[in-house]
Design a protein around this nucleic acid. Structure first.
Lengths: 124, 124
DNA sequence: GCAATGCTACTACAAATGTAGAACCCGTCA
DNA sequence: TGACGGGTTCTACATTTGTAGTAGCATTGC
């Protein structure tokens, strides 16, 4: 399951809470995303076709919930990226993240935090 | 600069060594990629339009070399992914990589290696 | 009973992507 | 000198993606 950029927006909104109506999803989209309501419906229909979400009806109003989990979507995306750009392996990807000099300080901080959390987790 | 999946194939081949002709690039593509020669030429032309590669001529034969570096391409790809799928931050992305239980043993190994290399690097 | 609201389904359409065919040009070898 | 091999450019076309318009069907407030 490959999500497009626009689909990520919708799924991100849906993962915030479900079941949800198209209207609710619309309200949750970031301000930078200014789609017509029908655009959102179209995306949801396509996502339902791809079986990333399930659509049910309450009356004639569509209710949506994710089938694809955020975790799986993330996993798939990372796998694709690793395949395309890092010879299919996570090691080099990780290595790149750690070594790349052009990360901002903030980003380096975040990496360190993640590493530390991992260490903590490992000790329990 | 956003590369599509097919474009990654071409760029990966080009990054293996340049300047290179379309024929050389074709020969370097993995067996799984079985494109007509003209397909490769089309991709190269499009990549030149996007200024990801530069095309020069020796006689009437096109010679290609990357303008976009592998490092930058990787950086861009990771940034996009972080934006779409991890609230724009590398920390959560990294955290996910470390914590995700569904990584294979091999993948976990690779992560560990990457971590260890980082430690070594830090000590020098 | 009818108009405004709000939802739905269906259709549309441009741009990007994947993939390639056709036709043309040039050097070379018989 | 003419056919072959290999390169080139241009054109083509289906599919996917981004984005939305339109028209039709309930609900409701007068």
């Amino acid at each position: 399951m490959r999500l497009t950029e626009a689909e990520w927006q919708i799924m991100n909104a849906l993962w915030e809470g479900w079941p949800a109506t198209a209207r609710e999803i619309a309200d949750r989209l970031p301000d930078s995303v200014n789609w017509a309501y029908t655009t959102i419906k179209t995306m949801l229909t396509r996502l339902a076709e791809k079986e990333a979400v399930e659509e049910t009806k309450r009356g004639n109003v569509g209710i949506y919930e994710p089938i694809l989990t955020r975790q799986n979507a993330r996993r798939n995306a990372l796998k694709s990226l690793a395949n395309q750009a890092f010879d299919g392996a996570f090691g080099p990807l990780m290595h790149f993240l750690l070594e790349d000099q052009n990360l901002s300080d903030r980003q380096r901080e975040q990496l360190l935090e993640a590493l530390q959390q991992r260490e903590k987790g490992g000790e329990q």
